[in-house]
Design a protein around this nucleic acid. Structure first.
Length: 356
DNA sequence: AAGCCGGGGTG
DNA sequence: CACCCAGGCTT
């Protein structure tokens, strides 16, 4: 195994990537000519969480209005924000303005050329600082933007979501190991171009990839599952009770769900929220009496937009013949004897479990 | 570690 | 509609 878990030596990786870049990379982006620190900086900040095609027109207008860091520092913030309007993440514009003033006041208008000094400027984190060093100053420094993350995660088959500290650390390790000293400008552009045009999030064009032979994700056929996507945000939980009213002879009382809402039109158990007295509900709705209630262990069912946690609330009764049921809305179902009606899945599972 | 910022593109 | 994008800052 090559360094840092890469399936190929970093030198080979960089060489293959650079050869590909010469033929297929993007060489005509507005901020590449000339790639001054100021122009690279503006582009990098605009490109944070924003796609190239969206950025280009904003970039042209911004540079035309604020051609230098001095011009930007001297401009009123409102003017800067006006040129940012529509790009989103407006803190970027405020930070840009603030950083321009710091560069003029503390660095005499010269952009710093160390990671530490760059990261001290508002709106410049580790990746943006690395990009400025590499692309504007030609100094070897790794970047780790969304493109590089995707390429590296697939190349070395890095497990887990890049939002966690451990995966982040691992990816920075890989980025550090892969970044070459020679042609670091081109390499930095190359890994982003590869991620943007070949190693795309969905349907990557692996057949066109210069790293094809050395990619673990491809070798394992796991391009689709790497890098792991952000875990779905925890779904809101709704808790309720489902009344499991049973009679030895009649069976279980089922009730049809209203036509809209969850399980619309399906058969389920009567629902009784935690703020409702089940005994009163049964009296009011069925003119029935329940001798005793007994809770069962809660069960969980997941919908696309929320999680339902329901507690089966078993009620024993004496004389089901006295209950008044609306024919099309309520029925006694004898588990195992009659054909089951269209049941909500978790209810079917619950009743299925009762037979055993 | 998690939340937040945001308009736009994509399956 | 859900998810993601050339991330960084705050809590």
């Amino acid at each position: 195994m090559a360094a840092a878990g890469l399936p190929l030596p970093p030198g080979k990786m960089a060489a293959a990537l650079l050869a590909w870049f010469d033929r297929h990379g993007r060489h005509d982006l507005p901020w590449q000519h000339p790639a001054t620190p100021y122009r690279v900086w503006i582009s990098e900040v605009m490109l944070q969480q924003t796609q190239v095609a969206t950025v280009i027109p904003y970039y042209e207008a911004f540079i035309a209005r604020f051609p230098s860091v001095e011009a930007l520092a001297a401009a009123p913030l409102d003017e800067v924000l006006r040129h940012w309007a529509g790009l989103g993440y407006y803190a970027r514009a405020r930070n840009l303005h603030q950083a321009a003033r710091q560069v003029v006041e503390r660095h005499g208008g010269r952009f710093p050329d160390t990671l530490e000094a760059l990261e001290a400027l508002p709106g410049i984190g580790r990746s943006t600082a690395g990009a400025i060093l590499a692309q504007a100053h030609g100094i070897r420094a790794p970047i780790l933007d969304g493109n590089a993350k995707r390429v590296l995660a697939r190349l070395a088959a890095v497990e887990g979501w890049s939002g966690t500290a451990a995966v982040q650390r691992r990816l920075w390790e890989l980025a550090e190991a892969c970044t070459p000293a020679a042609r670091v400008r081109d390499y930095t552009q190359a890994i982003m171009d590869l991620g943007a045009t070949v190693c795309t999030r969905s349907r990557p064009a692996c057949a066109d990839c210069p790293l094809g032979d050395g990619c673990r994700a491809r070798a394992e056929g796991r391009q689709g599952e790497l890098p792991a996507s952000r875990p779905r945000r925890e779904l809101p939980v709704r808790r309720t009770r489902l009344l499991l009213i049973t009679d030895p002879e009649a069976g279980v009382l089922l009730e049809r769900r209203p036509p809209t809402g969850i399980w619309g039109g399906l058969w389920s158990l009567p629902e009784c929220g935690w703020d409702t007295d089940p005994t009163e509900l049964v009296r009011a709705r069925y003119h029935g009496e329940v001798r005793s209630w007994r809770p069962w262990p809660a069960r969980v069912h997941t919908f696309t937009h929320f999680r339902l946690e329901f507690t089966p609330w078993q009620g024993a009764i004496n004389r089901p013949s006295h209950w008044v049921l609306e024919p099309d809305r309520t029925l006694w179902y004898n588990v195992g004897l009659s054909e089951p009606p269209g049941l909500a899945a978790p209810v079917r599972a619950l009743l299925e479990g009762m037979r055993n």
